[in-house]
């Protein structure tokens, strides 16, 4: 019986053990470490397969221009009349493509070659070149913004392609750009062919990206949301080169003294058109009439020289408009 009764020593031992177990279980001697969430992996830019190019020879063919009516005499019920009634032209533009469409940090205004065409259209429709509203969109948002009716017009270095003609309409060609590469100064690469095995950046959802994947499959394609995003990656040493239209690259090189666009033949032709909703053929015809006027009266050359005379040299003759598409 004495044996079965718990002696003080045993009781003490049991208590000490129990207390030790409790202390550790309730974490008085330390807490479980705070979990560190792993950062979200960037979306895989290389997942989308390059679009199969649709071969056609009328990518630059637009609708024949209407006769240019004055802003006070717009056809009733037309898209232009609706814009006039609203009081402003809404245009989708870039705010970070230096020289084409970029926000000037000093006054907060978005300005550039593309913006000047928006102003010209605002003047034609509303009689005042300042009656426009800019919606900043990424390259990938251009077609959805037009289709949803969020914007009347896209003036954002948009290449006219047969694929895109299936989704939206374009004005006649207002600029002929070509795709080139930009590298760090001191790099030996001169052409796209030299970039095998290097990391090359282009914005997602652009023809620049498609061309890069098709013409240089050996390069590591890195996507970004814009060309300026590519410039940040370039300056951080995360990519070795950027590819894009010569106009865009000129704007990037102007912001970085250590970036260089080598002397090279453009490996594509990129005809720029102003994007319009496919249904608004009347607006396309109206815009084409205004563009024809600008080509003829020298306004096109003035705009070109205002933005590109420094980096790209004096204005060439404006691209010839091609008409003949039937609605």
């Amino acid at each position: 019986m004495t044996r079965s009764a718990p002696g003080p020593r045993r009781l003490v031992l049991a208590s000490v053990l129990a207390v030790c177990a409790l202390l550790t279980s309730c974490g008085v001697f330390g807490s479980a470490p705070t979990p560190v969430p792993s950062s979200i992996a960037p979306p895989d830019s290389g997942s989308s397969a390059p679009a199969t190019p649709v071969r056609c020879d009328d990518a630059t063919t637009s609708y024949a221009p209407a006769s240019l009516s004055s802003s006070d005499d717009l056809p009733a019920g037309s898209t232009m009349a609706k814009i006039k009634k609203r009081g402003r032209l809404i245009a989708g533009v870039s705010a970070d493509s230096f020289l084409l469409g970029a926000r000037n940090p000093l006054d907060g205004k978005i300005e550039g070659f593309d913006i000047d065409f928006v102003k010209a259209m605002a003047k034609a429709i509303l009689g005042d070149e300042d009656r426009y509203q800019l919606v900043v969109i990424t390259a990938a948002q251009r077609i959805p913004a037009l289709q949803s009716g969020q914007v009347d017009l896209v003036a954002r270095a948009m290449t006219m392609t047969c694929d895109r003609w299936k989704q939206v309409a374009f004005s006649s060609e207002y600029y002929r750009a070509g795709q080139k590469i930009m590298v760090r100064s001191g790099s030996k690469a001169r052409t796209l062919a030299d970039l095998a095995g290097q990391r090359v950046c282009a914005p997602n959802g652009t023809s620049s990206m498609d061309n890069l994947r098709q013409r240089q499959p050996d390069a590591v394609a890195v996507g970004s949301d814009s060309h300026t995003g590519c410039l940040v990656l370039f300056q951080q040493g995360k990519v070795d080169a950027i590819t894009g239209d010569d106009t865009v690259l000129a704007g990037l090189a102007a912001q970085d003294p250590y970036a260089e666009v080598p002397e090279q033949q453009a490996f594509t032709a990129e005809p720029y058109g102003l994007g319009v909703n496919a249904k608004n053929v009347d607006l396309v015809r109206f815009v084409n009439a205004r563009l024809a006027q600008m080509r003829a009266d020298g306004e096109w050359t003035t705009i070109y020289n205002r933005w590109f005379v420094g980096p790209l040299g004096p204005a060439p003759s404006p691209p010839k408009a091609v008409y003949g598409r039937s609605a």
Binding site: D96, P105, S226, T228, L231, V232, Q235
Partner: peptide, 10 residues
């Protein structure tokens, strides 16, 4: 930004 370069926004 201080140099007026749009890459600042990015």
């Amino acid at each position: 930004n201080r140099q007026g370069l749009p890459v600042g926004a990015q």
